[in-house]
Design a protein around this nucleic acid. Structure first.
Lengths: 353, 353
DNA sequence: CATAACGTCGTAAACGTTTACGGACTAGTC
DNA sequence: GACTAGTCCGTAAACGTTTACGACGTTATG
């Protein structure tokens, strides 16, 4: 009598390579070879095996397979979930995930997103450690690096392949893609200056994200190039959320003389800026020009006035991240970085008309 | 000589329960028992094992463990990623994920989010099948069910424990949580009516989501209760995005006589509605009252005017989903459903003042 | 005809872990 | 002292798969 399966939700009929082999009257070795495209198997037999497998719905079980092969064919993406309700849920990521999964699955890999709450446990690296030590994935994608990023140090130490979204000072050499926030900050600021603005405020994250440094650097560079002074009072740090944008605008618009232009690092902050402008009876575009930053969410063009902000093909970004990682896994590639330009979408919020 | 590990990114020093046992001069069985809180082990030995494990950074490898135990201690969440850039990236989910992960990890489980693109492959269930057949998870969370949902039928067939967000006509009995869209639709409509509105438009998804049916049913119920006629022309179907809201508003505001109130199923549509109102020179609140639906994103209170919409403790929702699933895994619970009320947050968009 | 080469397949070991079973002690009981 | 009970631990068999190796039969080669 067959022992009941340990697996609680075992399917009724199909299960195991053994059953499949028995049903076909061949050995499990042959079945495995047939399904894995190994050479030493009769084309005729292979056909029969594949047919039977699809009929019985047999798919090799992950744990057995990866135990033996030492690879899971899963690519992890460590996703930091901010605590509480305050967070803005980056629509950005959805399409990025789509692009990544698309490329990965074409190569037999799967994307699994592992939510992480660094603040929830004593050890901020707890989840990452578990993922690595339990060998849950073959490689990792790490979105939004920080200036000093212990995650990168840890990953470098254990030597697992990964690709980072964003540069960092931490960790060893590794492949990355970063958006050129410096160029973006410079471009937007220069555009303001060219339009005649002299007092330009900027809103950036309070966090230690790398983006912040670069964005601010670009801003300063443009100021300097135009011979304008850098004023601390025109820089506001806050959450990258509508609430953060509101708080920043509240502070910045109180500065005397009042800034005539505002630059936010992310379009989510622009919503809060819009509100503060309305409260003060200021017209967005007319009295104060606004440029929202990365990213161009599905919402920005429907704001009133439509938000001028930076755009980016997030699907392509997701795809490229996957490609870089796959190349790294094939070890055909040396760790290189890619700096992606982000282009401005001109809409209404920075126009006086 | 030790053979090189098959695992590409094997850590330098630590590896395997064998090394740990050898180092302590005891058998691997004892080590395993010590780490798994099994009874038959000397407290003194247990301490030594735990100390050594944490020193060497030993954590049991997932594949070996789950192969033997027939359980992965992973809970999957199948996340449908819409194709293309058009989609609105539900900020809603971020906090939900946080709540779920929090509860699960307290019980030794982990949440893994598996992005799925049903349209990308010939078989829309491809990814779900792979997850189940490869035994990648012990249980599943399925957000946003449809009226007819093949995923539910499949899950019922294979008998894996799961909890759904949303009801459905498909599948067998299973635990679920749903938001009471019917009550929400009815409440908002009745509120409009009480404020004197007689021509009330509604924007719902074109999709076959269950939410749509219930929301519309509530809307109709309130109309009926007030003796108002139901007009097809006042119902617009579209994408649950700002663009969808814009398109819906464009159609609805052309109806003669023009509606004086608009109800959207989701606050993301409200952004598009706002824009269309502005384009027509109509004042939101004054000329046309607007109530956005579920969910109250971080943005809604910063819109101008602040959006009256339904709110929901998404963190609690995520937590409860996890709890229900855990109860189901302990098989202490029979499949029951929970209907969560969603309360209206009164702000400015539906006020005439 | 002897041998080599080839194509196809079965056998069995391995991957890392958990756990049923039994053995070796010690302590307690009559 | 013989027995039982209890404590702790080692042994070894599983879990499902992949793959190195060798065996077998057939065909080509000399």
């Amino acid at each position: 009598m067959k022992k009941p399966s340990l697996i609680p939700h075992a399917q009724a009929g199909a299960s195991g390579i053994r059953d499949l082999a028995a049903r076909l009257g061949i050995s499990i070795g042959t079945v495995s070879r047939a399904l894995n495209d190994k050479p030493d198997v009769n084309p005729e037999t292979r056909k029969r095996v594949i047919a039977a497998a699809s009929e019985l719905g047999y798919v090799p079980q992950q744990s057995g397979r990866s135990l033996r092969k030492g690879a899971t064919h899963n690519i992890g993406l460590l996703w930091e979930i901010p605590e509480g309700r305050a967070a803005y849920g980056e629509p950005f990521f959805l399409s990025l995930f789509g692009g990544t999964q698309q490329v990965l699955s074409a190569r037999g890999y799967d994307l699994v997103i592992m939510p992480d709450q660094p603040g929830a446990t004593a050890d901020p690296l707890a989840r990452l450690r578990r993922i690595i030590q339990q060998r849950q994935v073959d490689a990792l994608i790490l979105p939004w690096t920080r200036t000093m990023d212990p995650r990168l140090d840890y990953l470098a130490e254990v030597g697992i392949p990964f690709v980072a979204l964003g540069r960092s000072r931490s960790g060893g050499p590794h492949p990355w893609i970063d958006l050129d926030f410096e160029q973006a900050g410079e471009f937007a600021t220069a555009r303001f200056i060219a339009a005649g603005h002299r007092r330009i405020a900027i809103a950036i994250p309070a966090d230690s994200l790398m983006q912040k440094r670069f964005f601010l650097a670009g801003y300063r560079r443009a100021l300097k190039a135009a011979g304008l002074p850098f004023e601390r009072a025109l820089v506001a740090e806050g959450h990258v959320t509508p609430a953060g944008g509101y708080a920043a605008a509240t502070r910045l618009l109180d500065v005397i003389p009042r800034p005539t232009a505002m630059l936010a690092i992310d379009s989510s902050m622009a919503v809060g800026i819009y509100r503060r402008l309305a409260e003060l009876g200021l017209s967005c575009g007319q009295d104060v020009a606004v440029i929202g930053g990365v990213h161009d969410t599905p919402m920005t063009e429907f704001l009133v006035p439509a938000l001028t902000c930076f755009s980016l093909d997030t699907v392509a970004l997701g795809r490229r991240l996957a490609e870089i990682l796959l190349a790294r896994l094939d070890s055909k590639a040396n760790p290189a970085g890619e700096l992606w330009p982000i282009v401005l979408v001109e809409r209404q919020s920075d126009r006086i008309d």
